[in-house]
């Protein structure tokens, strides 16, 4: 609790954010450049899939982020409902569109990857389908958050929804896997594929790192702008009151 309340002051939070931001922005740019260079130039083409395997370096980290950000939102929602800490609400609100963006990126790259591999833009593959459902969970969360006149009500309702959704994700995942094996016994992509070669693993991990830091940068900037907006609103009201 004490750690929590140290950041309860928005000014202190802003100060901390301002010191950290340049550093993590730098890490984001560097790791993104390194990751992309390795993905495009140093990593080998796949012996079966050829050059299209390079889509993986965007697709897989995006899918990681889709799940990671939803978990973060669920965690923030628990904090928001139990301790009623405004930072948790702001973090959830700032994270949702980024998470939805990564989920969409995972779906789009999955579709691009699928075309040469499966001969179709969309295949009801178990993993892709789960990601699609996750995308709808994000949309519902964002829609609910913005559906109320008072932002605070939207935040609380969305927090409850995020937790319910998070509890349901394993159930949904399990059911989609089950459904998929029933209807499509021969899947093209095998879950237990050959262990990945280090020349491909490294760029993948670096891209994952870059995406994580990218998320951190964007989420901090979004929280910051929310705070500044709230301050502006307050000053405007004070001006009206004093007039």
């Amino acid at each position: 609790m004490s750690v929590f309340h140290r950041f309860a002051n928005p000014n202190r939070f802003l100060k901390l954010t301002n010191t950290v931001l340049p550093w993590i922005s730098g890490i984001t740019v560097l790791s993104l450049l390194a990751g992309l260079y390795m993905a495009f130039f140093t990593s080998p083409p796949d012996y079966q899939q050829g050059e299209t395997v390079r889509i993986m370096y965007i697709h897989v980290p995006s899918a990681w982020m889709a799940m990671f950000i939803y978990s973060s939102i669920a965690f923030a929602s628990v904090c928001s409902l139990i301790w009623r800490h405004p930072l948790a609400d702001l973090a959830a609100k700032a994270s949702a569109p980024i998470g939805a963006g990564f989920t969409f990126l995972a779906l789009a790259t999955g579709s691009l990857w699928g075309k040469p591999m499966w001969g179709a833009w969309w295949v009801w593959d178990a993993r892709l389908t789960s990601v699609l459902i996750l995308f709808f969970l994000y949309l519902g969360h964002m829609a609910l958050m913005n559906a109320f006149e008072e932002q605070e009500r939207g935040n609380r309702a969305a927090a409850v929804l995020a937790i319910v959704g998070f509890v349901n994700i394993p159930i949904i995942k399990f059911s989609v896997d089950w459904w998929n094996t029933l209807h499509q016994p021969a899947s093209v992509m095998r879950a237990d594929g050959p262990s990945i070669d280090p020349s491909m693993l490294w760029p993948l991990l670096i891209m994952g790192l870059a995406f994580k830091f990218f998320y951190l940068v964007v989420v901090l900037i979004r929280i910051k702008s929310e705070l500044i907006e709230a301050k502006l609103r307050k000053y405007r009201r004070a001006v009206v009151d004093n007039a």
């Binding site: 459902i133 559906a147 959704g165 159930i171 399990f174």
Partner: peptide, 19 residues
Amino acid sequence: GARRGGVLIPLLVLPLYIP
């Protein structure tokens, strides 16, 4: 109390109905 609550419900519920 949400704006367009009736339209929102399907969006919230359908992903959870899939299992």
